[in-house]
Structure formats: structure tokens, C-alpha cells
Design a protein around this nucleic acid. Sequence first.
RNA 1: GGGCGCAUAGCUCAGGGGUAGAGCACUCGCCUUACAAGCGAGAGGUCCCUGGUUCGAAACCAGGUGCGCCCACCA
Length: 847
Amino acid sequence: MEAGLFTPGDSGPAYTIVIPPPNVTGSLHIGHALEHTVIDALIRRRRMQGYRTLWLPGMDHAGIATQNVVERELAKEGLSRHDLGREKFVERVWEWKASSGGAILGQMRRLGDSVDWTRERFTMDEGLSRAVHTMFRKLYDDGLIYRAERIINWCPRCLTALSDIEVDHTDEEGELVSIRYGDGEDSIVVATTRAETMLGDTAVAVHPDDPRYARMTGREVELPLTGRRIPVVADPHVDPEFGTGAVKVTPAHDPNDFEISRRHGLPAIAIMDERGVITAPGPFQGLDRFEARPAVLAALREQGRVVAERRPYLHAVGHCGRCGTTVEPRLSLQWFVKVAPLAKAAGDAVRDGRVRLHPAEMAARYFDWVDDMHDWCISRQLWWGHRIPVFYGPDGEVVCTQPGEEPPSGEGWQQDSDVLDTWFSSGLWAFSTLGWPDDTPDLRDFYPTSVLVTGYDILFFWVARMMMLSLYAMSGQEPADAVPFRTVVLHGLVRDARGKKISKSRGNTVDPLDWIDRFGADAVRFTFARGANPGSDVAVSEEWAAGARNFCNKLWNAARFSLMNGAYVPDELPAAASLSVPDRWILSRLASVTAEVDALFEEYEFGKLSEVLYHFAWDEYCDWYLELAKVTLTGPDEGAAGRTRAVLGYLLDRLLRLLHPVMPFVTDELWTALTGGASVMVAAWPSAPDRASDPAAEAEIGALVRLVTQVRRFRSDQGLHPGQRVAARLSGIEGTALAAHEASIRALLRLTAVSEAFAPTASVQAEGVTVELDTAGAVDVGAERRRLEKDLAVAAEEVDRTRRKLANPGFTAKAPAAVIGKTQQRLAAAEAEIEALQARLAGLPPG
RNA sequence: GGGCGCAUAGCUCAGGGGUAGAGCACUCGCCUUACAAGCGAGAGGUCCCUGGUUCGAAACCAGGUGCGCCCACCA
């Protein structure tokens, strides 16, 4: 395959997919293999259809994830990033990127990704950095970016702020403790799971309508262990039903408490440092937050202030999405994006159908999130990422620079030390990769992108952010063309053979390259294509991959057979009337399959279209058509053999084209061998069948298949080897539709002509034909009788059921005519079956 | 606490108001000149439970049970 073909041509409508950029420091995992299989299949089909296809590759700098990886590497050398300093550390990350980024590209080549290598981008390359800078400034100018002191999610291990979605909540066992603040008349009992934060309490809050505490509101109580006196305030946020109905208020360490403090003008007292160590003066100073909790409780118990304990108490606790450390809500000065207007636009684009989510059920989740989103904290206290382009002057000046602008310099000027959330730059990916903020030809040609293929697990992280930022940046376009993509195809997660999540701790991880080595890239891709049902997870295993490999092999052998027998692709198919019935039949089937596969592609039903192709290729084309074709090819009619060679070539050509999007390598190799063409990549996609369906041929071959299967079953039951030649006479065939197929039937059943001494020992009746066999030995009459009686019972039941059904007045009155007709046919067939079976039973020799 | 999804063969999953399907696994027989990574023939399901709608429900509806996922500032 020629990589040059991966670059879009000059004509045809544009079809664009941007890669969900993998993390530079990672390697492609099995989930990427699924994702790339889907994307590449879409791209390849469109390319074959004549679109100007662009599959734009690239990588993400993945701020916190990458920084953690490189820090771990440094730790092996006994170093921390602080030992290197910011500049040296960032250099180090770039070195790391250079080595691992290349590995990813190599993996993509092995998978057969037909990406345009000339357009590869990286979120930290010069152009994209300029896009980030431009976007920041634009939002800043529009008042959509602001800096504020807020409670944010803080990871005490990564030492950075996190956005809400970077926090994972899990239920944990804790302890709900009720603590008495104040004494006697002037006391109130609060309930908390985080006793240690009481050191930073600046109030107690109760519900304004709670009669129990009306008396206390406005008074002060003494905060134990500190000697401070704090007010009791009334705030509607408090739920009177929960705990004691009184809440301790710690504005510096709890988001709700912070809100309460703002409503009541309460001070915030920070009691922990950035590592979660208590800084409040006193006996607890220097303790880690998790050591401080029992210590504080012990001290309170000693004073008799713990009045009730509930343990275990299950409650949700936030963890850093990157390292799993328990998140600490922390008051700090951060940059935020005001999301309300952006999120509204992002929701509307889906609501009004400019962007379609697939599967559509995912929209509910999307709206839930987009319609009720907190402002997005975008500053990160990291070194790896896009540095915030804001400078602070010695007299409190704040300057947000423009790209290319000389930053203010001189005594006392300093750049903000934070970098942006990695999802800020990936949120621009749909247009920054095409040259934005410049008005480039690529941007004009390929934006909006056609489809976004990604996992539902990053619907919020990425898809929603792309929507917000793209619609904002492209607001100059027509609304319909401002969207980053027309359709979002959400695939599931890859799971193991038992449907379990793939994870290192489970030890069920799969290296896609290892599978490619063992089964081949086509087999790996086919495995994923076959499993990819929209929106649902994909269970894969080596057995599936092996099955797909077998399929590739089958295809290879079928092609070899065809080529060995002189198959060629005709300029034009011979007229239907001149073709053999098997030829007409398989062309009819190909027509259906072509239409079906094409339609399934439009619905992103990769699992189904793969299944359709698999069964057509294996069960119909290989198992029946090729076997029937052998009869013609080796038969006496040269003209017929020639026409079959044309059909063989035509079929193989079409099948290879249809399979190419999901099995690029084998199909290309076989196709070029068959046709001498440059590449199947640019062969026309067969969307419409060339031949109308041929019901007569399908019916005839259907009868042939049933007859052959019946006789084979008899032979199998009788222990007659399939390879063993058996003399037989086909009587009654003259009057049937199978009359013309006697040679084929004999070949498929390995029946030989009868001699003078022909003495049939058994017979099988089906499709109006009686096949009398000389089994050259005794027939196991008992086995045959059992088989026939069993079949008879099945047929009798069928007759019974259908008769009852047809006798039901409700059915005959209300069922559609077609259903009634089918039922009558079924009855007739079952009755004929019974007759045939009884004849065979009667014909059995005694014994 | 809120929302969503799933329940079909041993396993993983399609399907869908009118005869229960696939792959793998399993059983039996075959090296039949494209292919043993193959060929032929089989066995194997109260379609989770209970009601309802219907001439007819595995499918549609309601409730139940059991799983799974997402969101979440009741300390």
C-alpha cells in the first residue's frame, strides 16, 4: 500500500477525522487498536467512494500524566523535578517525548492506519501553542477567563489543582462523629466526617427554619481545642434532616462551607499546607491530615465532647484521577473559564441536531453535564504544558499578552508560573490542527470535521470541551459549520473474554503489537470490527483473534483457488441468462450483501457488517459457491467454465473491496494480484449492487443445499466417511427444479454412477428427490430409524402447532396476509416432510 | 441521592409481535487435490421473575430481582 495515497487528493467532497491524540509518553494500548480500526475503516471506505479523505494524526502532551511519568523516571535516579529546575525538567520531558512519540507512530503504521503523515501535529508544537495562546487571550478579552480565589480540588501528591472531572468519587468507609461545640446552654452539636478540619472552623451553620436552633442563631459558641469563639449562622444550605442539623463551617477546606462563608462574611482559616500537613499552631501542627483526624478526635473525646459516633459510615470521597490520592478541597488563587455561555452553545448544537451523537442515548448524559457545569479551573501547578500568558507587574499590574507580543520586562515583572489544563489545548484540536488562528486552506477545506470517533469515557473531558471551544472560536462561521464535527461515534471500552475491565492490576492487559505479531494486523482489526457494536463495550480474547486470523487465511486460500483456476475480473459480467444457476445465485447474494454492508457502514454498525461479510465469505462463497464452481470449471462445457472464471474474479474483486476497510493488508495484496491494479485503496467502493436479486436462483440453490445436507446427514449418521465414494441413483429428480444440478449434487456428495450390479441398501428423500444409495454394507437400521422418528416428531409438532394456529379465528381474522401465507406454507412443508419421512421409515429394511 | 443501561446456548454477544441466532468452547466422523488455522454432521436455551396489552409476547408496557455504568457540594 502506498502511503502517498493517505494524503487527500484534489477533488471530491472532504471527509475529515482528527485522531483523538494519544498521550506522547504512552504506547498504543488495546483501546487505541479498537478506535483506530473504526476510524480507519470509515476513512478507507470514504476514500474508495472518492472523497478527499483526511485522517489527521497527532499526539497530546497530556500535562499531568506525562509530568508524572517523567517524574517517576527521575525518581529512579534519585532525583525530583525540583533538583533539575523548571527549564531542565521541561527539556527532559521533551527528550522523553522524542523517544516514545516515535514508538506510537510506528505502532500506528503496523496497525495500517491510513493517516496523512504530512499533517502530523502535537498539542505543544509551535502552531498549536500559538492557537492556545490566541484562544486564551480571546477568552480573556471577552471576560470568559478570570482569576479568582476559590475552593478547588487539590491533589496533595501531584501538588496541583484539578478540575471537577479529574476527580473520581468512590464510596469509602468513614466515621460520622457528633461533636459538642460550646458548653451548657451555649452549646450545639455538629456532625462531621472530617474532625481535623475543625481547627479551621469559623462558624456553625443551621437551617433558618429549624426550631431546634432558632435560639442559638446569632450567638457564639466556643470552638473546642482552640479557645476561639465562633458564631452560629442560619443558612438555607443546611439540611435539617442530616446528622444533627448543625454544620461546622470550614471555609478554607470545604466548597460548601466556602459558599456559606461568603454569604455571611466569615473569615477563612487555612490549616493545611499544599501537602495536606496541618499548619495550624498547636499540638497537631506537623501531622498529616490523616494522622490529625484520630488525634483531634482523641483530644475531643478526652474533653467529653464526642457525643455520638456512627461507624462505619459510607460516604463518597474524591480521588485524584491521575494518582488516586484523596483530593483535598483547598482555597487558592486559580484561573477559571466561565462556562455558562460556552456550555449553553455546546448543548444547543446537539439539541438542534447540528451535531449527532451516536448512539443517541448518550445525549442524555451529555446534556446532564453540559447543562449543569461549574466553571472550569484551567490552571495547573505543573511545569509541563502551555504556560499561562499572563504577566504580573511590581505594582500589581496584570497583562495578558498576545501571540508574538513582547512580554513586559523589567524589574519586578513575572510570568504566571502555572500551565493550562491539558484539555484546554486538546479542546482546540479540531481546528488548531488545521492551522487556526490563521485562515488556512486546510481550515477552509476540512473544517468542520466529519466524524469524531472516541470512547464514551471521555465524552466530558474532551468531546464537550471541543464543542465549547470550537463553537466559540468558529462563531464567525454559519452556525451549521461552526461545529467541530457533524457526528460523534462513541465506542465502548475493550474488555477481556469474561467481560472484565482490562487493567494492569487484573493482569489481563493485551499488547496490540503482540497480537499483531501473532495473528496479523488484519486479524486484530477484524476482531475489533466484529466486536464494535455502537456504544457497548467490546469483549475480546485470543480465541476471537485466532478466529479472525483463520478468516484471513480462509480468504487467502479462496483467492488462491480462484487464481489457480484462472479467475479474472471481466470488463462486464456475462448476461444473467448465460450464467449457471450457482453463478446467478452467488451474484444475487453478493448484491444483497453489498447493499447490506453499505447501509451498515452508514450506521456505524461495524460488528454487524463484519458479521455479514464473514458469513457471506465463509458459509456461502467458500462452502457452497466454490464447491459448485469446481463442477463447472472441471466440466465439459468450456464456455460455461469461462463464464464462471469471470464470475469468480468478479466476486473476489467485490468481496475484497467490501472487506478492505476492515482488513486492509490481505485485501490489498490479493486484489493487486487479481487485478494488477495499483491498490484496492482507491478502487471504487461497491455501494450499489450491479445485479438485481435473483429469487429463482436462490430458491434452486436453497433446495440443492437442503438435499445435499440431508444426504450428508444420513451418511454421517451411518458412519460413511464423507470422502468415501458411494454409488447412488437419483430418482425422481427429472421433474424437480434440481434436474439440472445432478452433476453438482453427485460431486458434492461424492456419489458414483451406478453399475449393473447396483443394489441400493438405503434411500434418502428430500426436495422431491429420492437418493438411493449402495452403502456397500449393512445400514444401521436402528440408528436410521431413531433419526427418522426424531425428525418425524419434530415435523409432527410443527404440523400440530401450525394447524392450531390456522384454526384460531383471531389469527385468521387479524394476522397480516403475508404471515398467514407463510404459516400455510410452513404447514404444507411440514406435511410433505412427514410424508417423506414416513416413506423412508417404511422403506427401511426390517430389523 | 439523581440519571442511564443490561439480563437470550457453557463463555462473549447479535436479534426481534408470527419456526430462537452467531463466534468460540463441546460431541462424532473425515488429511475429500484452495484451505486440518480445514471439511462434514451434531448436541446444547422456560430468551431473569410476576403481571398486563394482543388472535399470538422471548420481543411491547408495568412492577420485582440481580448486575453494570455515569453524575453528585448531606457535612
